[in-house]
């Protein structure tokens, strides 16, 4: 289980995987329809990816992204973005 605001993945692996996300997700808040990822609370982030992966949440783009992620990858991404949030001084 993942504690609130923390994830057990490998942040270095997460950093590499996150390079894929930045093709679409912006580094900062914009008025566009794709949010910056470090803003999302860790549990919400993990749940969203699982929901895309299972097909419960729609959007073919994110479903394809999530289907290419195992649990280890999702945890690692979560750990990386949690670190980034800390660096950015977010909550």
């Amino acid at each position: 289980m993942v504690a609130e605001g923390r994830a057990e993945g490998d942040p270095a692996y997460g950093e590499y995987l996150a390079n894929e996300c930045t093709a679409c997700h912006p580094p900062d808040v914009t008025d566009g329809v794709i949010p910056p990822l470090w803003l999302l609370p860790t549990d919400y982030f993990i749940d969203a990816l699982r929901a895309y992966r299972s097909g419960e949440r729609e959007n073919p783009v994110m479903q394809a992204v999530a289907r290419a992620l195992g649990d280890e990858e999702i945890e690692s991404l979560a750990a990386y973005f949690a670190d980034l949030r800390e660096q950015k001084g977010g909550s």
Partner: peptide, 10 residues
């Protein structure tokens, strides 16, 4: 709208 957001991000 996604396309516009993608263009800005990439």
């Amino acid at each position: 709208a996604e396309a516009d957001a993608w263009y800005e991000s990439i």
